[in-house]
Computed example of a mutant assay.
Amino acid sequence: MSTKLEERQKQRQDEIITAARHCFRASGFHAASMSQIAAEAKLSVGQIYRYFSNKDAIIEEMIRRIIDYRIAEMEGKTQTDRIPQVLAWRETLSEDDDALMLEMSAEATRNPQVAAMLAEADARMFENAATHLKKQCPHLSDERIRCCVEITAVMMEGSIYRRLTPQKVAPEQLEKMYREILNMLLNAN
């Protein structure tokens, strides 16, 4: 019996998250209200509060889901070989997730709780990427691994932002240069 109840609760949370994603994309986190989210989810505001204590709790769950998805996509893959291609061709796992993460970053400049959530999410991603890279490049020191992850994160996050503008250089040329950069980072002593 409790399994059915848990499944129903999970389904409701999923519906609320889906509605919130839509509202946040349309209005931004700051401007989207709980009543908008409730209307989009076809629920009352009171029903939403059964599942999430406030809008920040919805944001926290959304961040957790996006980061969990990204970490799961990293598992078992040799990412270093694909990074130059992903960067040069501006590939993405989810344009919607990327846009929401940009929106969350903007909200973090106004809301210390969201800033803390993003910092925690970044730490999870960073540690996961460092562990993954250490398996691929055991010859690198831990400090070098952390530097490589930081530089790669800057390139990846910059590419997310750059997707908003027309690309000014041929992707084939960029891919070669990104490959050179990664080779320099990963093959140094």
Results as ranks from 00 to 15, higher is better:
Trp89Lys: 12
Met125Pro: 02
Thr18Leu: 11
Gln11Ser: 14
Ala108Arg: 04
Gln79Asp: 05
Ala188Glu: 14
His139Gly: 05
Ile59His: 01
Asp142Gly: 14
Arg162Ser: 09
Lys55His: 07
Ser33Trp: 02
Arg124Tyr: 06
Lys4Ser: 13
Ser27Arg: 11
Glu175Leu: 06
Glu60His: 11
Asp81Ile: 10
Gly158Met: 09
Ala129Pro: 01
Val149Phe: 01
Leu118Trp: 03
Met34Lys: 03
Glu120Ser: 12
Ala119Ser: 13
Ala20Arg: 01
Met1Lys: 10
Pro84Glu: 03
Ala153Met: 09
Glu175Cys: 12
Glu95Gly: 14
His22Met: 06
Asp98Ala: 12
Met1Val: 11
Pro138Tyr: 03
Pro138Gln: 08
Phe126Gln: 05
Asn183Glu: 15
Gln36His: 08
Ala32Asn: 04
Arg25Cys: 08
Gln9Ala: 14
Leu174His: 01
Lys77Ala: 13
Arg12Asn: 12
Met177Phe: 13
Ser2Phe: 07
Thr165Val: 05
Ala130Gln: 04
Ile181Phe: 09
Lys77Met: 12
Ala99Ile: 09
Met101Pro: 02
Arg64His: 13
Val45Gln: 12
Glu103Cys: 12
Tyr51Val: 04
Glu107Gly: 02
Gly28Gln: 08
Ser44Asn: 07
Ser2Glu: 12
Val86Phe: 07
Arg50Asp: 07
Leu140Ala: 09
Ala188Tyr: 03
Met34His: 02
Leu43Gly: 04
Arg146Cys: 08
Lys4Leu: 14
Ser94Trp: 08
Lys176Cys: 08
